[in-house]
Write a protein that binds this DNA or RNA. Structure first.
Lengths: 228, 228
DNA sequence: AGCTCCTTTGTTGTGCACAGCATCGACTGT
DNA sequence: ACAGTCGATGCTGTGCACAACAAAGGAGCT
C-alpha cells in the first residue's frame, strides 16, 4: 500500500489522530483564539465527516484543557488565567530540568539533522519575524528537546503543559510586535546555547539552559503584560 | 432545590462526571483488571444511558491512558509495562517533592479532620488487611496530600500519574497476601511520619517523607515481582 | 417607558439504526 | 487429513434525527 491510498483511505484511528493534531495546532497557533466559539457542524463539514467522530476529537481536546463545551451555548477555546499561567511556568521549569536528569539519551543522527534544520529556521526568523512561524519553530524545538529523554510519562506531561500555555505566550508576543525581533534574537541565542551543550554531550547542562530561558521568557512576558 | 431532586435530575455535565469517576474507580480498584474487555452496551445498560454518552466517558478515560478501544475488537483496560512503570515512579518521586516546594499551603480545619480520619482508617487496616480498603485509603491519602499545594497543574499531573499506576501497585500487593499486613504497617508509619511533619508545619519535610516512602514502596514492589 | 413573559433560534447532548472491522468456526476442495 | 476460504457473529465507529438547553428578541401588560 503506498502513501497515496493511505491518505485517501484512512481508518478510524488515523483519521482521529489527524483531526486531533490539526485542531490542536490551530488552537496553539491562535487560528482559534482563546474565548472563540467553535461550531461542531462547521468543523465537521470542513473535514468531511459527521458530527459524531468530530465530537470525539473535541472531547479529547476538552480533556487536555484546550476546549470547553457547554450544552446549549457552544464549544469554546479555553483561556488561561495569569495565576494558573504562573503556576504552570514554575512547574515547567522543574520539568525542563528533569528532562536532563531522568533517562537522558544522546541525540541520534536523525535528531541532529532536525536540530540543524531548526537552527537554520530560527536564524531565518530574525530577518522575517512572523509570529506564526516563530510559534511553529518554538514548538518544534521544544518537541525535539523532549526527545532527549526516554522517560515517556515525563514527555507526555511536558507536552501537555506546553500545548496548554504556548498559545498564551504567542498571544503576548503578537500583542507587542516591537519586541518580536528582540524575542527572535533571544530565541536564537537559546537554540545556539543548547546546541553547544548538546555537542559536548552534556544533556543536563542543556536542560538547565532551557530552564533558564523558559524562566526569562516568562519574566519578559509578565513585563509585556504590565506594559499594556 | 433539595438534594433529592438534584440526584434524580442530573444535567449532562454532572452525569458525565459521575460515570467518569465511577469507572475510573473500578479500574483503579481492580474491579476491572488490566487486560479485561469492557462492553459498551453492558455498561450503558447498567448506568441507564445509551451508548453515546457512555462513549464520551470512555474516550476521556482513553485520553487518560486507562482504556484503549479497538474497532471490531473491544474496549480494554490498559496494562503498564514494567519499564514504563519504573519511569513513572521515578517521575512521581520528583513530583512528590515538588508538592512541598511549589505553592505549599498549610492544611485548614477540614483537611486536618480528613487527615485524622485517614489515620484512623489506616490503623483499622492493620487488623483487617483488605486489599480493596487498602487501595481506597491509599488513594484518599494521596489525594489529601495533593491539597497541600495550590499549584493546580502540579495536582492535575500528579493525580493523572497516580491513577495510571496505582492499580499496578495494588495488583502486586494482592499477588502476595503474606506481605499485606507488613505493607499495612509500613503505610501506617508513612501516615504517622507525614502527619508529624505537618503538625510542626514543615510541608517540605512532609513531601520528602512521602517521596522516600514512594521510593521504598516501589522497591518492595520490584522484590515481589522478582519473587513470583 | 420599562418590565415580564414567551416564542424563536441556534447550540450541544442523546438515542438509535446501520456501517466497518476483526475474529472465529464451519465448509469445501485437494 | 489438511489447508484455505468464506460466512456468521459481535464488537466499536458513524450518520442522522430529535431532545434538552440557553440566549436573544419581541409582544403585551403595567
Amino acid at each position: 500500500m503506498n502513501i497515496g491510498t493511505k491518505l485517501i483511505t484512512p481508518n478510524a484511528r488515523d483519521r482521529f489522530e489527524r483531526l486531533h493534531a490539526e485542531i490542536r495546532n490551530r488552537i496553539c497557533l491562535l487560528d482559534y483564539a482563546p474565548g472563540m466559539r467553535l461550531s461542531e457542524q462547521v468543523l465537521a463539514e470542513e473535514f468531511g465527516v459527521s458530527r459524531t467522530p468530530l465530537r470525539r476529537v473535541l472531547v479529547r481536546l476538552e480533556g487536555e484543557g484546550l476546549l470547553q463545551s457547554v450544552q446549549g451555548v457552544g464549544t469554546f477555546v479555553t483561556d488561561v488565567e495569569i495565576a494558573e499561567l504562573e503556576q504552570t511556568y514554575r512547574l515547567r521549569l522543574e520539568l525542563a530540568e528533569l528532562t536532563g536528569r531522568l533517562d537522558p539519551v544522546q541525540p541520534d543522527a536523525a535528531l541532529w539533522s532536525e536540530f540543524r534544520e531548526l537552527a537554520d529556521r530560527s536564524h531565518a526568523l530574525i530577518g522575517d519575524p512572523d509570529p506564526r512561524h516563530f510559534a511553529q519553530i518554538n514548538m518544534d524545538f521544544f518537541l525535539a528537546l523532549l526527545r532527549l529523554t526516554e522517560n515517556e510519562p515525563l514527555r507526555d506531561i511536558s507536552e501537555r503543559l506546553y500545548f496548554r500555555t504556548a498559545r498564551i505566550w504567542l498571544k503576548s508576543i503578537k500583542a507587542s510586535t516591537i519586541n518580536m525581533s528582540e524575542e527572535a534574537i533571544l530565541f536564537n541565542r537559546e537554540v545556539d546555547d543548547i546546541l553547544t551543550a548538546l555537542q559536548v554531550g552534556d544533556l543536563h547542562a542543556a536542560s538547565l539552559i532551557q530552564r533558564a530561558h523558559i524562566s526569562m521568557s516568562f519574566q519578559r512576558m509578565l513585563m509585556g503584560v504590565v506594559a499594556h
